[in-house]
Design a protein around this nucleic acid. Structure first.
Lengths: 196, 196
DNA sequence: CCGATATTTCAGAAAAATCTGAAAGTTCGG
DNA sequence: CCGAACTTTCAGATTTTTCTGAAATATCGG
């Protein structure tokens, strides 16, 4: 591997982490190199940087394209393909979340939906199905939530995150202002309208 | 494998998914079985259900304990260990997020912090470090955000999720009402944390 | 169409992970 | 302290995943 130590540590770490994130080590390393590179790189430059085989890089780039994590571009008078990671790191996060949802959540949701159609034949199955329903409902709600907030623009998202748990105070205000649809919250002990 | 078809599909699916989530197939399957089981199970019952070796189950259960995903309990007049998944599915989600953060985010953050200390020796390193800083800042913010919202109680979280993107409307109100006071800077590594 | 340049495919090699059975370890009542 | 009932450990077998080199395929300017 032919990289300055600073970059090498970063690349190796992403290689390791890649494993936990559903891609192999090489794919993780390729992405790390692209991420820190000031310009787009072609496949041979990546081979040079990482010291893995050309074919391995080719497969890795293909996988990164399947994940929508890299952009392919060309230089004038150069037939080679050049790849880069998006400038905007928030865009990267969005893509990552989107793709992981597509690969993990969506298939699980559809498996659960199928399972919930079946008619339980025993008490054991009845209980199992009950648990699956809980899981389905939770994931379904998260899925809806994601579909909703993914449309919020980045700056607003940052604002929300910085607000953190103080959001709940805002939520109390929301209750009072009836921002929320049908659900009604039980009022706290309040001195204004006391009966008995 | 000795399970009703309904449950079997669920268990096999979680075996597959387990791989993507940093645990092996057997661990995923064990958890699936515990999740749908009406009572706690002992190791031999799991062996029976999944048709894998006793030692494999033993290692799987050990790993699930390392993830804090199972509870160990005992029955009167029975020396065997009985395992169960928590009743509360939200508790399961919280644990999963907590542990995944611990294993993926935290190590990455500390690698990045290290890398940001180094002095860049070239333009290439300078740019790489710049990108790492972007990544660090984003992850750090998410980490702070998580530390903050994890303390919100479940019911409130559900309320927030149901609110979805309408939260931005509330946020506009927040701007006007000046809810956003200057945020307390998080304390640096300090081993004598004071009560909230 | 040719030859040069570039990329992809893929069968088998290499490496990594998972799983197993046997043995060792632990804990208990008596 | 013993033996029965359980659990854990671990070296090697098995399976799965990853990686490579060689061959095939594609694309371009001339």
């Amino acid at each position: 591997m032919n990289l300055p130590p600073l970059v090498q540590t970063f690349v190796l770490h992403f290689g390791e982490m890649g494993g936990r994130w559903g891609v192999n080590r090489t794919v993780g390393q390729i992405y790390a190199v692209l991420f820190v590179s000031p310009q787009p790189l072609n496949a041979d430059e990546i081979v040079e940087a990482l010291g893995v085989s050309r074919s391995n890089v080719s497969m890795g780039l293909k996988e990164l394209q399947a994940w929508n994590l890299v952009r392919l571009q060309h230089k004038p008078n150069d037939r080679r393909d050049y790849y880069s990671a998006p400038e905007d790191i928030w865009q990267i996060v969005r893509t990552l979340v989107e793709e992981r949802k597509k690969r993990e959540i969506d298939p699980t949701l559809s498996m659960l939906r199928e399972a919930l159609m079946a008619r339980p034949e025993s008490e054991l199955e009845r209980h199992a199905q009950e648990r699956m329903r809980e899981m389905h409902d939770l994931m379904d709600m998260m899925s809806d939530w994601y579909d909703d907030i993914r449309r919020i623009e980045t700056e607003r998202l940052v604002q929300l995150m910085k607000l953190g748990s103080r959001i709940t105070r805002v939520l109390e205000a929301a209750d009072r202002l009836n921002f929320m649809s049908p659900r009604k919250k039980k009022p706290e002990a309040d001195d204004a309208p006391s009966e008995s």
